[in-house]
Amino acid sequence: MLNCEVVEPKGAADAAVIWLHGLGASGHDFVPVIPHLGLPENHGVRFVFPHAPEIPVTINGGMVMPAWYDIFAMSIEREIDLVQIESSSAAVRELIQRELDAGIASERIVLAGFSQGGAVAYHTALSYPKPLAGLLTLSTYFATAKEVTLSEASKTLAIHIFHGSQDPMVPETMGHTANQILQSMGFNPKYRSYPMQHEVCVEEIVDIGNSLKAWLQLG
């Protein structure tokens, strides 16, 4: 089981958000965002921020750092280690199962991911055999569009894609490509762009909160 930062609601949890960080970051990264999401005080949402394992990353000279998978080349298609992304996806499925075991319905679990974490979130949510509340992908790309096996349960999955128009790390074209691929697969994603680089901004955080409120019927 992945080590995680877990932020519990004030009362009993009846929903969960599993939020994956980007390359070289940690589960601590998005914890400070929670108070700014605009959720009602009694929201009942458990936030789970897993830490990626530390592995050598080829594009960074083989340096060992937190990563969900190795990246071999920074081409627009991205050359990645598919075995490792599936392994990370399996680890996220374990976290989902832990929430199910704790009494949270799958329909009240949201997957979110930034950059590399978003690629894992795509792969996990679209192949997961039970219906989820929604998928939030932030400044990321659909790395396994050719490899993923879509589950029957994912066909009605709500997907919101948020990206920075000035992103030098994951160019916005990669967000648009993910959007187009999802549409070709029969999904109806919502896409929003922000005048920012490879980061999050206040306006985006508000939109993330609005997505959670809508999907989890909060206040």
Rank of each mutant, 00 (worst) to 15 (best):
D101F: 00
E86R: 13
D101S: 09
V170T: 15
G219Y: 00
E152R: 15
V92C: 07
F30I: 11
Y191I: 12
L212Q: 04
V202A: 15
E199V: 09
V7H: 05
S184P: 03
P131V: 13
S211I: 08
Y128F: 15
G61P: 14
I205M: 08
P50N: 06
A105P: 09
I96K: 10
S75D: 10
K146H: 12
V33Y: 01
L216W: 04
A16M: 05
S151I: 13
V6S: 02
K146G: 00
E86Q: 14
N188D: 15
K190N: 07
Q97Y: 01
P171T: 11
L37D: 08
S88H: 06
E54F: 07
I205H: 04
E5M: 05
I104H: 03
V202R: 15
C4P: 07
L37I: 02
G38W: 03
Q116I: 08
I18G: 04
P35E: 04
W68G: 07
D101L: 08
E172G: 05
N3E: 11
N60D: 10
L39K: 02
S88G: 08
Y141M: 10
S75V: 02
A145D: 10
W19V: 10
M174N: 09
Q197D: 15
F142I: 11
A119L: 05
P195W: 03
A178Y: 06
L182I: 12
M174L: 15
K130T: 11
I71Q: 01
S106E: 06
